[in-house]
Design a protein around this nucleic acid. Structure first.
Lengths: 197, 197, 197, 197
DNA sequence: TATGAATGAGGATTCATTCAT
DNA sequence: AATGAATGAATCCTCATTCAT
């Protein structure tokens, strides 16, 4: 986080809000400068250009995501509990600061700029790969069923996670994400745990 | 389909291609008219305005989706087989005509116009609800486990379906979607079937 | 000339006027659109971008220059007379339509764009090389002294021609260019003719 | 030179480099401050505004030019030799410090500000008038032909001088300016010396 | 003394859309 | 029926300059 100045953080934050409220198309320099409450050219003292802003948002999201993933894996808890944490930590963060809605918007950021796309996909891979590692470890430890490949299990869990998040947002935050997330995590636990264990 | 003229279908098709190739931002009247190979004002004889085009795309996607869902449920096959079909039919269609990539882009179409958003969410709900019905029927028929709620099962399956599709696209179509889809469907079957059955 | 539409010619002409009056820096799309009396975006229906306008100006100047050079060499007059013509024809054209001031501004057009620079230098070489050929022919025909190389003679004549033109313009058209041009041409004739002849 | 502080000289020098490399359009306060390696506002402690910088550049060029002209006329050499010197001294200076390219850029500095224009034209007149005096003296002394007026001779010599310089620069310094300058000076000597002498 | 932050004015360009023909 | 020409609004961005610190 130290890599961004206060002003930059402020701008990134407002940019995330703008995107969260009205989509990427709403992220114009004009709107952004209005949100931050200074003139358009002033933005350019803090970022080279619009791409730089988007890149910084992605960097910021990456930092957030890394911190979440660290928490998820932190304690010496079992793989199944880590998966619970994966849901809980993400949804806690998302629910507490709606503006960034973390991953959800990653896809929305796609501007068909190669450099940008690569960066976004990197963030998305980050959590997927971490989840995958957790699952694999769980399988090796005998906690998680092994009759289904790590890959397929990852897709199921990541998919459920993302779908729930998307639904929440599309419903205009009509339900309690943390509560529903917990239910979903339990369901997944039932589906993937090693029954013989 | 009868609700669209040939010209309109042509325009919708090219619009879908443009979006598929470079995102919504690439769907400008200029690009579209270039793609359809007639003048910009000519577009306006076929559609009232840009929103109308987007709306028509959504209508078109809805029609496609309905037709797929019909096929999925058609035969008197079991719920579990219908879920297999859900994957198979969608991925078959997506893989065969990359341009429309059906659902995938639905989210990308979001323009933060209330009417539009509603329509898009409708398409997305369409398949979710159908899937939900299939699952519920499966549970009632004893094919699908009942220790997990229909809702949670739906999220798992829809999530996996969408995540796989998204991965395929982000990977630049690097793997065989139909093959991977089949594997994923099998994994899901293992996870949801009623074991006592 | 047929390569430009009427509107394009109109725009080029106004652009030349703007440059002639206040320099390249004065050639903005806004000023240009004001001069042509339609909106800024309208310019873009006729030219791809500003570079395209500049390129077209150069093309236009090239066409003009070629036509002048053709006149200069046309008749079967002697080399010395062709040099007289070189001055006369150029200065006649420049004096009659101040806006284009032909060559003079070529240098002013330099925008440090490689493609543009190349095109401008081409126009400038065009007249220099033509003049060089005339001189060489004159030397071979015994009309022009041969104790000075063609190259050095070319520099002297081109230099005098350009310097007089620049002076005229810097003086704010304070003297009669055609009259002074004639005097200068005579002086040059005295300096370069083959005395033994 | 004493009229400029060290800092000012430094700034002027970098400004000349910027102009030499990419034209006047490249002379922005931002670029200049980057080149001098301090902040933009810092420029304003050394110069009132951009016009002041341009004015100072012209003043600087004037000082340089005066010093060159002094050298040219210095010794009690003949008029024809002074003309040789005129070429030699200028081209020597230009070739040795490409950045200022003295006169050459004078025209490029034209910003269509009346005060500025006047100053630039003054520099250009300075050398022209000095040359003119030399020629006139040479004519009176019987060294230089008198069948051509001083004015016309001046135009020929100044023109050749400037044209050669411009060619050198447009060719991207592809030839040895001092060598070609010497050849040109010899050619001119042949053309203007008093033959009966 | 030096500079980070800010800005009004203006730059080129694109967009969806309309209108005259 | 089809299009060339045109436009108002908005896009990103740069410029010279000022001001508070």
């Amino acid at each position: 986080m130290a890599r961004f100045s206060d002003r930059q953080k402020e701008i990134i934050n407002e940019a995330l809000k703008l995107i969260a409220n009205n989509g990427i198309q709403n992220l114009t320099i004009k709107n952004l400068s209005k949100a931050v409450n200074f003139s358009e050219p002033a933005i350019y003292r803090h970022f080279a250009d619009k791409k730089d802003i988007l890149m910084s948002i992605i960097t910021y999201l990456t930092i957030c995501e890394k911190s979440i993933l660290k928490k998820v894996q932190a304690s010496g808890v079992s793989a199944l509990d880590q998966i619970d944490n994966f849901f809980a930590e993400h949804f806690h963060q998302i629910a507490s600061e709606r503006n960034s809605t973390v991953m959800k918007y990653s896809e929305a950021l796609l501007q068909h700029d190669p450099k940008l796309s690569k960066a976004i996909i990197s963030v998305m891979h980050l959590s997927r790969d971490t989840l995958s590692e957790i699952i694999e470890a769980g399988q090796k430890a005998g906690e998680i069923r092994t009759d289904i490949s790590t890959k397929q299990l990852t897709i199921v869990i990541m998919g459920a996670f993302r779908f729930l998040m998307a639904s929440w947002q599309q419903s205009n935050f009509a339900f309690d994400l943390e509560v529903e997330g917990k239910k979903q995590a339990e369901a997944i636990r039932k589906m993937i745990h090693n029954q013989g264990h």
